[in-house]
Computed example of a mutant assay.
Amino acid sequence: MLDDTDRRILRQMQAAPDVTGAELAERAGLSPATLSRRVERLRDTGILRGVRAEIDWKVLGYSVEVSLRVTLDKSEPRAFDEFAAAARVVPEVIEIQTFLGQVDARLSVIARDMAHYQQVYRGQILTLPHITDVDALMHVARLKTDESLPL
């Protein structure tokens, strides 16, 4: 599926995502036209999903992060879909994951401070549909965060 040139392009994109196309072509050892064709093919096949801005929400004043482990009412056929749809609307929910097992979902919630968190938790999280139990884990430190793949 990927050849060595594709892997080289992807490694360079991961290492320096903000470089210009010309600089990326040079780093990957390709002409700009060849790079352009290769990148377009990587997009067409779905390997490259897009470019995004990484925003440091702590700099914007959000100092609290809480991970909520949620158990849903599994007797309701649409519980997962309705829960996820409602959770997506809460601006402070920055990540939603679903699981198989005792815990059905995990929400990452950010807040400016504990008072704001309590407001979000009581006013928006606890009103989400089909919740039977919530377990909160206060985030202390992020020891590793890396979406780069070993290419």
Rank of each mutant, 00 (worst) to 15 (best):
L10C: 07
A28Q: 05
L42I: 11
T145I: 09
S75M: 09
P150K: 14
L126G: 03
A87V: 06
D104H: 04
R78Y: 00
R112P: 09
D81M: 13
E40H: 13
F99R: 12
V134A: 03
T98F: 13
V109P: 00
R37L: 15
I131F: 03
E95K: 14
S31W: 10
T132H: 02
A84D: 06
T20A: 15
E23A: 15
Q124V: 06
A141G: 02
T132V: 13
V109R: 06
D113N: 11
L68Y: 00
L2C: 04
L24Q: 10
L143E: 11
Q119P: 06
L10A: 06
R8E: 14
A111H: 04
R49Q: 15
P150N: 13
V120G: 02
L128N: 02
V120K: 01
E26V: 13
P77L: 12
I131Q: 00
E65A: 06
E82Q: 15
D146E: 11
S36H: 13
R49P: 01
L30I: 05
A105C: 08
T20Y: 07
E26I: 12
L126R: 14
A15G: 03
R43G: 04
V39L: 04
I94V: 15
G50N: 10
R78W: 00
R37F: 09
T127D: 04
M1K: 12
Y117V: 03
V103Y: 04
L42T: 08
D18K: 03
E92W: 14
F80W: 03
T5I: 15
L48A: 04
A115N: 05
E82I: 10
G29M: 09
G46L: 09
T98G: 05
R11N: 09
G61M: 10
I55V: 15
Q12T: 07
E26L: 15
L30F: 12
A87K: 04
V51M: 13
L42G: 09
D146F: 06
G61V: 12
S31Y: 03
Q97F: 03
V59I: 05
S36E: 07
T71D: 08
D104T: 01
L42Q: 06
V39T: 09
G61A: 11
R122K: 14
Y117N: 01
G101M: 00
L42W: 05
Y62E: 07
E82M: 11
E65N: 04
K144R: 12
S31P: 01
E147G: 13
Q12K: 11
Q124L: 11
M1P: 05
D113A: 06
A33G: 04
V19S: 08
